[in-house]
Amino acid sequence: MRAWPSMLMLGALLAGPVAAAEYAPLPGGTFTSVLPADGKAAPAKIAPFHMRTEPVTNAEFLAFVKAHPQWRRDQVAPVFADRRYLTHWAAPDALGDALPQQPVTRVSWFAAQAYCESEHARLPSWYEWEYAAAADATRSDARKDPAWRERVLQWYSRPSSQSLPTIGGAADVHGVRDLNGVVWEWVDDFNALLVGSDSRDQDGADKMKFCGAGAVSMQEKENYATLMRIAMLSALKAVDTTNNMGFRCAKPD
């Protein structure tokens, strides 16, 4: 906290956090990501950080737009959010049928960033998110366990015509909940996953899009589940909102 006077000032300008969200400390370290740091095999290095224990909910985001009316759906600048932004709410400042404890969705990356700033936080990086989501109740990296993969894939098999579950799933070993099985989540560097990293092979950008090409990087079966998340994030622009895309925030240690 001491290291962030400027953030504090910014936070004060934005009228401060809207609710006392809980953050859990994660130790970080080296982590074998599905996207190798050098495009081949190098593990990612993750500094210790804090992650919000739950995704941001409708109720929390409603409080945010009330405090920051420039993020109401009827006032937001079109360059920051598309026309679907928060359209599942009954009104710009009322939830209606959307449940307070459901994760907020139909939010753009810009809106998610702004919200996190209001909590003196930021969006997690992909590596931070992937590292956190690798945990289960007892292990920080449970990805080799078929049960972990099963849980991830089961959510993909559930049709999205059903309404979103509410938050409050079981806490993992870090005390973080609902990383898999509730919503997609924005990450800070979502648009760098496929196209931005020069260290990847030149054909990297196309790898996920073409028939069969993705198989090169899918040597481990459990990566399949994670790659779908990358494919989803890669399909989006920062103004886009979708029915299943929510977010949570992170802070440096």
């Binding site: 679907r84 993909y156 049709p159 999205s160 015509s161 997609w184 196309d206 899009k209 073409f210 028939c211 779908m228 494919a231 989803m232 890669s234 399909a235 989006l236 979708t242 029915n243 299943n244």
Partner: peptide, 22 residues
């Protein structure tokens, strides 16, 4: 809009990279 996944299409009747997928 209520899809969960991004999708694309590769038509084998297309001449061009990815058959339109890209």
């Amino acid at each position: 809009p209520d899809s969960k996944m991004p999708h694309n299409i590769d038509l084998h009747g297309v001449t061009g990279p990815g058959g339109g997928a890209a």
